[in-house]
Simulated assay, not measured.
Amino acid sequence: MPTEVTALSTDSVLGGKLTLRQMMSGHRVGHDALLLAAFAPADRRMAVDLGTGVGSAGLAFLARVPDARATLVEIDPTLAALAAGNVALNGFETRAQVVTADVATLGRPAGPDMPGKGAADLVLTNPPFNADARHRTSPDEARARAHMADADLLAQWVRAADRCLGAKGVLCLIHRPDALADILAALAKGFGAVEILPVHPRPDRPAVRLLVRAVKGRRTPPVLLPGLVLASADGAPTPEAEAVLRHAGALR
């Protein structure tokens, strides 16, 4: 069912380089989408943002790479409409289009015309994780069900990315650290040269997110990159985080 429209806010991110209209309740744009966009290589020219929501990751990438284009894919028509509004709000009408579709249909005969099969050189995705199911009654069973659902959904989205990407195309995703085994398993069927960047809230805290970058058709073993720390021990943003989240810098 479409998301119910609630009151909207207009928010500036990336130090004012991007403006997003979004609902005031429910899921709101956070660090994940901006980190994902920053992890994408700047030499890509045709991006697809799977599960774009209000367009945050794809539009953040366009704000950083001015000669790139993007197709923003969202299954929820309410969110897709907000994404289309954000395309116009930021003056990206000639560089971005929004497609309302199920990720699973992309690149298939019965799927939408855009994005075309093999037409992209970059796919961005923040796959949904079913965290709520981990806290039901009978925790062991709930955890197992949630894990299987998450792993299957992740694999489905990676397969969709594979269909969208041309040879040597790059997939960038962000996920929970406890999904690492599932991520590597999903990527093993079509991707290699995997780079993994842990994101830590503070220097003494475990990673809360993994940024993952992989190349279609490659077979090079995975590498673990130095982690990104978002805040110092006293809670102040680190210079590295500020460079990415406020100044639209790149994560290498």
Rank of each mutant, 00 (worst) to 15 (best):
L106S: 05
D32F: 01
N126I: 02
T137Q: 14
E93C: 03
G107E: 03
A119W: 13
T71S: 08
G53S: 00
T125R: 12
P41V: 08
G107P: 02
G116H: 09
D102Q: 11
D49R: 00
Q97P: 00
D113G: 07
F129L: 04
D121W: 06
D76V: 06
T52Y: 12
Q97M: 09
A57T: 00
F92Q: 06
K117P: 10
A63W: 04
D32C: 01
L106H: 04
A81H: 07
G30D: 00
T71V: 13
D113P: 04
V103E: 15
A104C: 06
E93P: 00
H135G: 09
D132R: 12
A131G: 05
L106N: 03
I75C: 13
T125W: 15
T137D: 15
R69A: 14
D76H: 10
R69D: 14
L59V: 02
D43N: 09
T52P: 06
V87E: 13
G118I: 07
K117Y: 14
R64F: 07
D49V: 00
A120Y: 01
V48A: 14
D102C: 10
D67Y: 15
A57E: 00
P77C: 11
A60T: 03
A57D: 00
A84G: 15
E93Y: 03
T105Q: 15
A38S: 01
A110C: 02
D43E: 12
V73C: 09
R44T: 11
A63G: 05
M114D: 14
M114A: 15
E93I: 01
A80G: 13
G116C: 08
P41N: 11
V98Q: 08
A101T: 04
F39L: 06
A88C: 04
P128C: 05
E93H: 04
R134C: 08
T52C: 15
A42H: 12
N130S: 03
L79Q: 13
G107M: 02
A68L: 07
F39K: 00
K117Q: 14
H135L: 07
L59H: 04
H31G: 01
A110H: 06
A88R: 08
A96Y: 08
M46C: 14
P77M: 12
V87F: 14
G111Y: 03
V123F: 11
V99Y: 12
A40M: 01
F61L: 08
L59E: 03
L106T: 04
G116I: 05
A83R: 10
L124S: 02
V99L: 10
M46I: 13
Q97T: 09
D32Y: 00
H135Q: 09
A42M: 10
A131W: 10
D132A: 15
T71N: 05
L62F: 12
V73W: 12
T105V: 12
T125D: 14
L122R: 06
S56R: 02
A110Q: 05
N126V: 02
L106W: 04
L122C: 07
G91V: 06
R45F: 13
K117I: 11
F92D: 05
L79G: 09
A47D: 10
G116A: 15
A120L: 03
G118A: 10
V99R: 07
A37G: 01
V123H: 12
V73K: 07
D67E: 15
V54Q: 03
H31D: 02
A47L: 13
A81C: 04
A80C: 09
F129N: 02
T125Y: 14
D132V: 11
A84T: 13
A63D: 04
L34F: 02
A70S: 06
A57Y: 01
